[in-house]
């Protein structure tokens, strides 16, 4: 029988092209039973939100390697709220500087997975944030 899947939208905003991290993450999440909707690079906030709505994604993940992530994240979250999808959890990965974490949390970012984060941490976050369980992931609620 089909089941409740976690649908996770992965995207990059701005002109950042360092996509190898997020592409590998997509494969690893697929291995854990996640349905990844992969938007690739060079997205605008509007594009991400339209995809998020159409795909009814449970969670959005963004990866950054450029320093402009504060700007793009704030812009996206503002537009998500305006579009009525401010409730969808947002996680960030890539080169997120520790100094910026409080500001990002303040904005409403729910998960921050900088360098050194493990797959188990990401999977646990996905389960907690969406309230859904993954096939092999007993991490939720544990």
């Amino acid at each position: 029988m089909p089941q409740q899947k976690i649908r996770c939208l992965l995207a990059m905003l701005g002109t950042d092209v360092h996509n190898k991290g997020i592409r590998t993450l997509a494969q690893l999440l697929r291995d854990r039973g996640v349905e990844v909707i992969y938007l690739g690079e060079h997205n605008t906030a509007g594009g991400v939100i339209n995809a998020l709505i159409a795909e009814d994604a449970d969670v959005v993940g963004l990866s950054y390697s450029t320093a402009t992530y504060l700007h793009y994240t704030r812009d996206l979250l503002d537009k998500m709220r305006t579009a009525g999808v401010g409730d969808v959890p947002l996680m960030l990965g890539g080169l997120i500087h520790a100094d910026d974490e409080p500001a990002l949390r303040e904005m409403g970012v729910r998960g921050i997975f900088g360098p050194g984060s493990t797959m188990d941490q990401i999977v646990e976050f996905l389960q907690t944030a969406t309230g859904k369980t993954l096939p092999g992931g007993a991490a939720a609620g544990a």
């Binding site: 697929r30 291995d31 060079h42």
Partner: peptide, 29 residues
Amino acid sequence: SGGAILGDRIRMNRHSADEDVFIRSMAAR
């Protein structure tokens, strides 16, 4: 795993900000 990578939208990304285009991906599950 039952998971999937649905990446077809990438090739249609130029329509991503167009509200008169609706794209939905569906996996086999």
